[in-house]
């Protein structure tokens, strides 16, 4: 299986982007007998949007949770801005996390807080020293970016799924992160809303100049947002390349993802 790793490496594409900021090599993670990540390797360069494709439950979410240190990995190396995640202290990890925006599958808005408080929450730790007006301005600016400025005092329970996604996106953008990690951003949304969200992600990527990893099995979203795709099958980086390159591949496992289009 090992020879299958990095099936296609797009050497010319890489030059368009900056230095690698996330380097994943031979990552292994298992929960008991369930070997989720077997030997996964991927490198993300600055300014790059990488979509990780894979079936549900194949360990895509585990991968990005490893990146922010939510789940410790068993073996291999995972470097973010050159820092090995498993070796750094909590303090440094927190500083690193401030540079990473994480959009959760379920939006993960804090139910007990208003939209404003949700957005301010991240500033508690990382935005110290900001005055009340600065915070308010930042919150409003970010909400305006996702088009939900009117919902600032609303409780999350009153929001629709699409709005929750937007708020979740706004919340992870408020610290102006360098890396965005999206966990299934379009899952559970109707196609139109899903497209809106994909466009919004792209827009934000341009506005904030972020690099992203987008976990998805939504091909429309992938088509729209990805500079590069990685197909995760059985816990390894089965295939890698641009959308069109992968589409043209003859491998039936890869082809299966494109059949629905």
């Amino acid at each position: 299986m090992k020879e299958d790793v990095a099936y296609h490496v797009m050497a010319p594409e890489q030059k368009k982007y900056g230095d690698p900021i996330i380097e994943i090599s031979h990552l292994v993670k298992s929960f008991g007998d369930n070997h989720v990540l077997r030997d996964y390797s991927l490198t993300i360069r600055k300014g790059e949007n990488v979509v990780v494709l894979g079936k549900s439950g194949c360990g895509k979410s585990v991968l990005i949770k490893c990146i922010v240190g939510l789940i410790p990995y068993d073996k291999g190396s995972l470097k973010v801005f050159g820092n090995e995640i498993s070796e750094i202290q909590q303090q440094e990890l927190d500083e690193l996390r401030a540079k990473i925006g994480f959009v959760f599958q379920s939006s993960a808005l804090y139910d007990s807080m208003t939209v404003r408080e949700n957005l301010e929450f991240a500033l508690r730790r990382h935005g110290k020293g900001k005055s009340r007006t600065e915070v308010n301005a930042l919150v409003e600016e970010t909400l305006d970016n996702v088009g939900l400025l009117h919902a600032v005092e609303v409780m999350p329970a009153e929001l629709s799924g699409g709005m929750r996604k937007r708020i979740g996106l706004a919340r992870s953008l408020i610290l102006k992160p360098e890396i965005m990690l999206y966990d299934e951003p379009t899952t559970g949304l109707d196609p139109i809303t899903a497209k809106e969200i994909s466009n919004l992600m792209l827009k934000m990527q341009l506005k904030y100049n972020t690099s992203s990893i987008i976990i998805s099995h939504d091909m429309h979203c992938a088509q729209l947002t990805a500079n590069r795709l990685s197909v995760m099958i059985d816990g390894i980086n089965y295939a890698e390349g641009t959308f069109d390159e992968l589409r043209k591949m003859n491998d039936p496992k890869v082809h299966a993802f494109f059949e629905i289009l």
Partner: peptide, 20 residues
């Protein structure tokens, strides 16, 4: 129930990621 749903909807993870 509150913590359970926070756990299930990844709010606890979200908090950790946001540095709290």
């Amino acid at each position: 129930a509150e913590l359970g749903s926070m756990k299930v909807t990844e709010q606890i993870d979200a908090m950790e990621v946001s540095g709290t």
